[in-house]
Structures are given as structure tokens and as C-alpha cells.
Design a protein around this nucleic acid. Structure first.
Length: 958
RNA sequence: GCGGGGGUUGCCAAGUGGUUAAAGGCGCAGGGCUUAGGACCCUGUCACGAAGGUGUUCGCGGGUUCGACUCCCGUCCCCCGCACCA
């Protein structure tokens, strides 16, 4: 009896062996090096199936490269800088019920352990241990001598050095930017801090400053009525202003001006960089009926009442452009027959002429009017007014062009005008920017309504710098991007990237060396840390670098200076300094970084930016591979809401190899893997079959590899070469699914056919290649099998098989094809006729049809076949001429298929093949089988032999 | 809205101009394995068909072509990213 597939036992055994025998701890040598990195995980929870996918892809690639003879460095570390861990420790300390649930149920942490994690340090330590154990439990070939955490003091030293360089290069500048802000917490809010309004984005409105003259005539008494708009160009079409008569407005000192805005708007202004002071309240009613001056056109317009004006949106004052804005048109229309004398308005509002300023195809003068009529919007309170607004906005934005009445902007596309105009208006002092949420309200987890805060004197990484950008694009152009269609995505994102705030007040991390109040933002400290892996080995071995000067780093990483000088300055042995320097020179640059696709627009971009800024071109990264996510039974995984599958759970339930095989075999590239239990079970069953078959082969002492190779032996070896070639190509392109299809599933089927056809002597040779091909994917079971008699050393270090062209045997493959096709044809006839055959006769093609096919293939051109020419040639061929009765019919058939004619079928002696395999055919069909050539058909009761064609024997079933 | 990816036979998923009714897996059905089997092996799985055939399919609607799942145009739907957050 065979031992059963006991993954748990031997997986642990091999993991221990790898570690004890330091199998994956590379040192520089004469081999080609390969440095592979994967973004380290953030330590605010356990590793889950998403991490598992990215890491396992990386591990498979590392193992594959290793087996191809490269000296592979695959290190791993842990990310802890930033704010979430601090927040988490507080929530755990307070036993926040939601967090408690998430971490006990989803992350599977026992309550007593969780309750101890009440400081950031304890969390980091705990999850670091968990993560490492999880990674070891799935068998990653990581060099753990190099692990570190981003909160290590030595790492901080490295980050300080890096930021010193960036500062020196003038890539770090000061500026201000708007953030979502919680007034209660006095802190920016992140997505996961938000209770409601998570999708809200910050939109920049233009405030256009309409001027209300002081009735006393003193210009210093003028007041500003700022109108917030997303379409500043429409200032040319303003015919009145809207105020809500039921809203309380306030006067406010804003810098040196007096503004009138809604109370809500005033509150928002206090969070901007303006100097503000609250003045008297003033009701909307009082202002209605006054006139104001359009600051751009100088036109005087009336302030009118409208209910749609929301005091909590913009300034609470709206400019009215009825030609292009449905709400404005509707509100004005609503006033036509109203008595407005209580506002002192007696003029006929119908006299107000609309001003059209945008030309767009499909619309006339007043698109707003047209759309309102088209959608039958009744009034400003009709929900359809919203739809009408969006419709006009969309069409005008994309297709609209400014008309002559916009002066120097005439002819500009609406889509291009905003930034230009805004800059001009600001320059003229008649407009300002005002930030507003796209969705409201936005509520912080503490229950407070969030505002937009303008953070001043913030440190920025100047990613918009044109030269820096150009260098990153150049770096990208020389890189390999996998999958290739993601290259354009990278290009777009580089183009789009703006300056990024790189310092924070809160959280874990490294202080800015020149401004200690600030902590370096955590994405910014994770950009060139792959270089630090080289150093980490020495730090872990006891070297102290906490007080090392920049010169040390300069020498190690930039080759500036010399070992002797650095040794003298630092007190380190010169040998050590030299060794680290040489290690770095050997291992760098990064040969490939594999990552989830969520990091494309942030981390991976910064990774390129910082490498380009700091390192010389020869040390820029060589390749990036991007992969998709993992979903669970079709549902998106969520760390905070579930469902969640942790790496440890997956391995505990299914074993390391099955987990790896499933995750690598079910999707590749940016497609998501769907983790489904029935699929995992099926993978488990396959794994077991593989193991059992392999054990059977290993136990079979009758195999004689040196016996003369039969057709089926040659076929098997031929197929094996093809599978090797396919899997190799796939692995070169990091297509794990495709690689596994060939290396595992299809090869499995090939082997089944081989055995079914009586093959056996090559089983061991096939198994040897098979186990080696599977080793990057399912390393434990492969070690187990390898050690059971396939070879010396470790499967992990054995040579990846190389396809041997000489073993590709086209004849053997064609013969097997013919056999399989013939069996299928017989089967089909049997199915259709529902006959119970007692004897089957096969007739292989007559020679003249082969001649005819040969002629036709030669004569076919551009998918066409000239029948008369073919027949002429045919009749000139004696072998065909003898069959002139049947020849035209066959020629016709060939002509019909002219576009796909192939000489394929001519390369095989079908009669010889089928005769030789008669015994197998009889076994497979279960009845006696006779084989004739149609040229000597013998007894042919139904004349079936006439149907025989090249590649397709005629069949007669009795 | 912008950018990227995608919609294939019950499900997952290959396939980018002809050898494709369309790989492989799962599921399902039938048979075998001389007790059982959720183990293994074989067969079938779009429809019709008493001779290997024919018909209809690849989100939807058009077009190019001798020929399209594959190319072009339009349209609908789904997923990811849009930042200061890891």
C-alpha cells in the first residue's frame, strides 16, 4: 500500500530543512544574480489571501530563476510606519467593539492575545511574528537574514540619508493643500476614518466676486457677493444672482474685503488660509432686489430669490446663467408671474435677456431652455432639474466652444478653459478658489461633520517637476512591464501625478532631518528600501549603524568615497565596509518587483521616482509585474468588513502546496483569483493524484528507461518537450496559470494517455522533469518526491528542465493523432447509429487521394484553388487518372476547403500505423478490428473504402 | 467624469482573421473497476441526426472580409485606480 498524501507532515519537514541547511541564503558569486522584491506587508493585521497571491507569485518566480541557474535574492521586511497602527492600538486599548469583532473573528486573533496589543510597538511585534510564521508556513524561499521593520532605528537612519539627498536635489518643497479635516479631532481624516461620505472628493469651485455698491457711494463700503461655480466661463452669461430668502447670511471681513456669504460658508472660510472675522447677520430678504456688478463684464444685475439655493453649498450665493443652466432658467421662469414688490422689485423679469456664450453641436442659443422643455422639467423643485443640469453640463463640457462674447477666450473649448480662466480671474483679483465636498455630509467616525482644511507650510515631494517626470518616463521606457498592457497605465499615472505631501504630524515613522516636527509620510519611506536589504543583513548580525554619517551610505549605495576613509570615519572595519559595498554592487539593481495592481498609482510610481532621483541609471529597476486580487466565493475580500481569508487559515486547512497551486493556477496577470472551496477541493484531489502517481512510478522496478523506445514512448517524450517549452515561456512572462496548465494539468493528461496506450518505460524520465517543473509551484511535495529517488540535493535547487528539440517527434504525434481521431470517429458513429458493433474494418486512404491533396496544396494560392487547373494536373498524374470517376468529386471538396489545405496528413504512413496499433484498437473498441488500405480494400461490402481520405480512414462497422 | 482592464458554451477560464462547436478545470450524466465508493479510469455534456453529418452560438446593434470570438464603428453592463491614505 502507498503512503497517503500527508502534506502537513512533509511540508513542515522541508521548511525546517530549508532553514537549517540555509538553502535560500545567497551570497554573491560568479553566477548571474537575480534580485526579486515584493512590497512588504503593512502590519495592521494578519496576511490574507491577497498578500498570499502576490507573495506566492514572487516566490514561484524566485524559485524558477533559481532553478534556471541564477543566484536569487528574495528578501522580505515589514511596514509599520504611518498612522493606522497607532489608531488601531488606541481602539484595541479601548476595546472598541467593532475592531474587537474584526480582529477576533476575521483575523482570528484569540481575545487574550488581542487585549495585550494596546500599544503600537506590541502590535508591530505581534503581527511581525505572525506574518513571518505565515510566510514560512507556506514555504517561501525568503532569505530571512535580511528582515527588518520600518520602525527600526537603523532603518530611520537610512531614510534620513535618503531625504537628505532629495532635499539637496530640491525635490522637496513647501506648499499648501486642501485636506478633509475633522474639526473635533483636529486632524486630517482618512478613508477608513469616515463614517459617511467616503466617496466624497474635494472639488474646487471658483468664487467670483460680484460687487454690491455702498449706497452711500463710498467704495470702501462696497460689499462682495462671491458666487461659487464650477463653470467660471459662464460668468459671461450672468443675468442675475440668486439668494435664498429664507437663509441667514452674514457679513464677514475676509482679508481686506467685506463679503456676504451664508453662515455655513463663513464656517468653511475659517478653515482656509484667509483671515476672517464675523460681522453682522443679514437676511436673504434684505439683499434681494439690490443690484450688483459683474466684475468681469461690468454689467449690473439684479439679486433675485430662489429656493434651490443651498446655503451649505459654496457661498450660498449663485450666479444665474439661464441660457446654460437649467436651474437658473427654471427659477427665473418661476418668478415671471410672482409679485416681488415686497423685495422692491417692480420691473418685468421677462425683460431680462438671456446671454448665450457657448456654442455646442445639437443645441441652439439656449441649451438650458431646450433641455428643460425636452425633459419636461416643471420647476426648480422638480428632481428632473438635476438630470437636466448634468446633461447640459456634460454636452457643453465635451463639445462646447466659447462664443465671440467671451472676448479673448472665444473659440476655446469649454473643456480646456477652466484652468486658464481661473488663473486669469485670480490674477485680476476678481476670483478665488473655494473647496467643497462633492458629496455631503462627510462625517468623521467621531460623529463630527468634516470640513476642508487648507494645510499651510506642508512639505511636498515635487513629483510634478518636469525633468524628474521625464527621467521616470525614460526609466519606464527601458523597463519590462508585465502584463504589457499596463505600460500605458503607468505612463498615464506618471503624467497625472502631482506634488505629494510627504510629511505628517502623527503616526510612526522617521522625522524629517531638517524639520523635526514632521514625520516622513509612510509611502515616502518605502521607495528605495530594497537597497536596505543589503545592509539589513549586517545590522541583524549586530552591526550598529544608528549613528553612522551620510558618508557611510554614500559609499555603500552610491560608490562615493572609499572604504578606507569611511572605515576611519566610522570606526568600522574596512573589510566590512568594503564587503557591504561589494554586496550592493553585486545585487543591485532590482531585477523585478511584483506587486498587486492597487499599488500602481502610488507605491510603484514613487518606487520609480525615488530610484530615478537617487541612483545612477544603471541601478534603476529592470521590471515590474502587476497582479490582480483574490475574491472569496465571488465576493470582494475586505479586511474590515469581511469576508477575509488569512494566509494561515488557508494553509492550515489545505496545506501549503495546495494553497499555492490553487492561487497560482486559477488566474494570472491582472485578473482576480476567485477562491472557491469546491475549486480548492478539486485542486487538492489533483495534488493527491499527482503524488500517488509519482509514488507508483517511483515504486515500479520494472521500468527500463534504456529499452528501445516504442512509438508511444517517443510520443510521450515529444509531448513532454512541448510542455516544458510552454511552461518555460509562460514562466518567463510570469504567467503562472498558463505555466501550470502545461506543466501540470495537460502533462497529467498526456501521462494518462501514455499509460493507457501501454507506455511505461519513460515514466521515470517524465516524472523527473515533471517534479522539477512543479517545484516552483508546489515545492514541498516536489522535495518529498525528489528525495524519494529522483535525484541528489534539493528539488528546489535542481535544474529546470530544458526542452530538447531532438526529442520532438512529429511522426509519433501524428500517429497518435490519427489513432485518437479514428477512435473518436468510430465512437461517434456508434453513438449516432446506436449500433452494437461486432467487428470494425478501417480503410486507409488510397494513394491517388494523397497525390491529389499534394497537388491541391501546391496549387492553392491566397486561399483560392483553380479547379480546372487542378483537374488538368490531376489527369496528367497517372495514379489519379486511373480514378477519373471519383477524382472530380474529391477535387471539388479540396477546392471548397482551399483556404485551409494542409499537407499535414501526407507525412504519415497511415496503413502502417493503424496496422501496427491494431491490438490497441481492438482493446479500445472491444471488438475485432481489420485494417486495409483503400487501394487493396479486400472485402468491402458497403464500398466504404471510397470514403477514405488522407488523415481520415474510412470506417465500416458490422 | 477621466484613465486602465473585462463581458466566451451550466460555472471558472483559454482562444486575437481560417486546422474553433471553441483547450483545460469544475459541475452534471452514463459506463467500467467482477461488495461499496464523496477514490480511480473511460465516455458524453449547444441543438437535431440510425455512418463520422447538419444547423445555431462567443454582451447588444451595425460594418469590413471569400471567411470574425478574433478587425472597425456605435451601444449597454461589470471590475480597478483617481492621492496625501496604507
Amino acid at each position: 500500500m502507498l503512503e497517503s498524501y500527508s502534506a502537513k507532515e512533509f511540508e513542515a519537514k522541508w521548511q525546517k530543512t530549508w532553514e537549517e541547511k540555509t538553502v535560500f541564503q545567497p551570497e554573491p558569486d560568479e553566477r548571474q544574480k537575480f534580485f526579486l522584491t515584493i512590497p512588504y506587508p503593512y502590519l495592521n493585521g494578519n496576511l490574507h489571501a491577497g498578500h498570499t497571491r502576490t507573495f506566492t507569485i514572487g516566490d514561484a518566480v524566485a524559485r524558477y530563476r533559481r532553478m534556471r541557474g541564477d543566484n536569487v535574492l528574495f528578501p522580505m521586511a515589514f511596514h509599520a510606519t504611518g498612522t493606522p497602527i497607532v489608531g488601531l492600538s488606541e481602539l484595541i486599548a479601548h476595546k472598541d467593539p467593532l475592531i474587537w469583532d474584526v480582529y477576533t473573528k476575521l483575523h482570528g486573533i484569540p481575545e487574550d492575545e488581542l487585549s495585550l496589543l494596546n500599544t503600537p510597538e506590541k502590535i508591530v511585534l505581534y503581527f511581525r511574528r505572525q506574518a513571518k510564521a505565515a510566510m514560512q508556513s507556506i514555504g517561501y524561499s525568503i532569505d530571512w537574514r535580511r528582515e527588518f521593520t520600518t520602525t527600526d532605528p537603523a532603518y530611520s537612519k537610512f531614510i534620513e540619508w535618503q531625504y537628505g539627498i532629495l532635499r539637496r536635489l530640491d525635490y522637496i518643497v513647501k506648499g499648501s493643500h486642501p485636506v478633509r479635516w475633522c474639526p473635533h479631532d483636529r486632524n486630517p481624516v482618512e478613508d477608513h476614518d469616515i463614517l459617511k461620505g467616503e466617496d466624497a472628493t474635494i472639488m474646487d469651485f471658483t468664487l467670483i466676486k460680484f460687487r454690491m455698491h455702498d449706497p452711500t457711494g463710498d467704495a470702501t463700503g462696497d460689499m462682495i457677493l462671491p458666487c461659487a461655480t464650477l463653470r467660471p466661463e459662464t460668468v459671461y452669461g450672468v443675468v442675475n444672482l440668486w439668494l435664498n430668502p429664507d437663509v441667514t447670511y452674514v457679513q464677514a471681513k475676509v482679508n481686506d474685503e467685506t463679503w456676504i456669504v451664508s453662515k455655513e460658508a463663513y464656517e468653511k472660510l475659517t478653515f482656509t488660509d484667509r483671515k476672517v472675522a464675523l460681522g453682522a447677520e443679514v437676511s436673504g430678504k434684505e439683499l434681494i432686489g439690490r443690484t450688483v456688478t459683474n466684475p468681469l463684464t461690468g454689467t449690473e444685475v439684479l439679486v433675485l430669490p430662489a429656493a434651490f439655493v443651498d446655503p451649505d453649498n459654496g457661498s450660498g450665493i449663485v450666479m444665474s446663467v439661464p441660457a446654460h443652466a437649467p436651474y437658473d432658467y427654471l427659477a427665473l421662469k418661476d418668478l415671471y408671474d410672482k409679485d416681488l414688490s415686497l423685495y422692491g422689485i417692480t420691473s418685468d423679469l421677462r425683460q431680462i435677456k438671456f446671454i448665450s456664450l457657448i456654442e455646442s453641436p445639437g443645441y441652439g442659443e439656449f441649451p438650458a431652455v431646450e433641455v428643460v422643455n425636452e425633459l419636461k422639467v416643471s420647476d426648480q423643485n422638480d428632481p428632473k432639474a438635476e438630470e437636466a443640469t448634468k446633461l447640459v453640463y456634460r454636452r457643453e463640457f465635451h463639445n462646447g466652444v466659447l462664443k465671440a462674447n467671451t472676448g479673448k477666450y472665444a473659440g476655446t473649448a469649454v473643456s480646456k478653459i477652466k484652468d486658464v480662466l481661473l488663473a486669469d480671474l485670480i490674477e485680476k483679483g476678481i476670483a478665488e478658489v473655494f473647496y467643497e465636498f462633492s458629496e455631503k455630509p462627510v462625517i468623521c467616525r467621531c460623529g463630527t461633520k468634516c470640513v476642508i482644511m487648507l494645510v499651510r507650510d506642508q512639505w511636498f515631494l515635487e513629483y510634478s517637476d518636469p525633468e524628474w517626470k521625464a527621467n521616470v518616463l525614460r526609466c519606464l521606457a527601458n523597463m519590462r512591464i508585465i502584463p504589457p498592457e499596463f505600460r500605458v497605465e503607468f505612463e498615464n499615472k506618471i503624467d497625472w501625478l502631482k506634488d505629494k505631501a510627504c510629511a505628517r504630524r502623527k503616526g510612526l515613522g522617521t522625522h524629517l532631518p531638517w524639520d523635526k516636527e514632521w514625520l516622513i509620510e509612510s509611502l515616502g519611506d518605502s521607495t528605495i528600501y530594497m537597497a536596505y536589504y543589503i545592509l539589513a543583513k549586517y545590522v541583524n548580525a549586530g552591526m550598529k549603524i544608528d549613528n553612522l554619517p551620510p558618508e557611510f551610505f554614500e559609499y555603500i549605495f552610491m560608490n562615493n568615497g572609499d572604504a578606507a576613509a569611511v572605515a576611519a570615519q566610522t570606526g568600522l572595519p574596512q573589510e566590512t565596509v568594503q564587503k557591504i559595498h561589494d554586496d550592493f554592487a553585486y545585487w543591485y539593481p532590482v531585477d523585478i518587483r511584483t506587486s498587486g495592481k492597487d499599488l500602481v498609482a502610488n507605491h510603484l510610481l514613487f518606487f520609480l521616482y525615488h530610484h530615478v532621483a537617487i541612483f545612477p541609471e544603471r541601478l534603476w529597476p529592470k521590471a515590474i509585474a502587476v497582479n490582480g486580487f483574490v475574491s472569496l466565493e465571488g465576493k470582494k475580500m475586505s479586511k474590515s468588513k469581511g469576508p477575509l481569508l488569512t494566509l494561515r487559515e488557508a494553509v492550515a486547512e489545505n496545506g501549503a502546496d495546495v494553497t499555492r497551486l490553487y492561487i497560482l493556477g486559477n488566474a494570472e496577470g491582472t485578473a482576480d483569483v476567485d477562491w472557491r472551496n469546491d475549486g480548492v477541493d478539486a485542486t487538492h484531489a489533483h495534488m493527491e493524484r499527482f503524488y500517488n502517481l509519482a509514488r507508483e512510478i517511483l515504486a515500479d522496478e520494472s521500468l527500463d528507461e534504456n529499452a528501445e523506445k516504442t512509438l508511444i514512448d517517443r510520443w510521450m517524450l515529444s509531448r513532454l518537450q512541448r510542455r516544458i517549452a510552454e511552461a518555460t515561456t509562460a514562466m518567463e512572462n510570469i504567467q503562472t496559470r498558463r505555466a501550470l496548465q502545461s506543466a501540470f494539468y495537460l502533462l497529467f493528461n498526456d501521462l494518462r494517455w501514455y499509460q493507457r496506450r501501454g507506455g511505461k518505460n519513460q515514466l521515470r524520465a517524465v516524472l523527473s522533469a515533471w517534479v522539477r517543473m512543479m517545484s516552483p509551484f508546489t515545492p514541498h511535495v516536489c522535495e518529498e518526491l525528489w528525495a524519494a529517488g529522483l535525484g541528489e540535493g534539493y528539488a528546489s535547487l535542481a535544474a529546470w528542465p530544458v526542452a530538447d528539440e531532438a526529442l520532438i517527434d512529429v511522426q509519433a504525434e501524428k500517429a497518435e493523432d490519427l489513432l485518437e481521431r479514428t477512435l473518436n470517429d468510430v465512437q461517434e458513429i456508434v453513438n449516432v447509429t446506436r449500433a452494437k458493433p461486432v467487428k470494425i474494418t478501417l480503410y486507409t486512404t488510397p494513394e491517388w487521394k494523397r497525390e491529389m491533396l499534394r497537388l491541391a496544396v501546391g496549387a492553392a494560392e491566397g486561399g483560392k484553388l483553380d479547379m480546372s487547373a487542378l483537374m488538368k494536373a490531376a489527369m496528367a498524374t497517372p495514379a489519379i487518372a486511373e480514378h477519373k470517376k471519383d477524382a472530380p468529386k474529391y477535387a471539388q471538396k479540396l477546392a471548397k476547403a482551399a483556404h485551409s489545405l494542409s499537407a499535414e496528413a501526407l507525412g504519415l504512413d497511415e496503413f502502417e500505423t493503424l496496422t501496427r496499433e491494431k491490438a490497441y484498437l481492438q482493446t479500445a473498441l472491444g471488438v475485432p478490428v481489420e485494417v486495409f488500405s483503400a487501394d487493396e480494400a479486400g472485402e468491402d461490402p458497403k464500398g466504404k473504402s471510397r470514403q477514405a481520405e488522407p488523415g481520415r480512414p474510412a470506417i465500416y462497422i458490422e
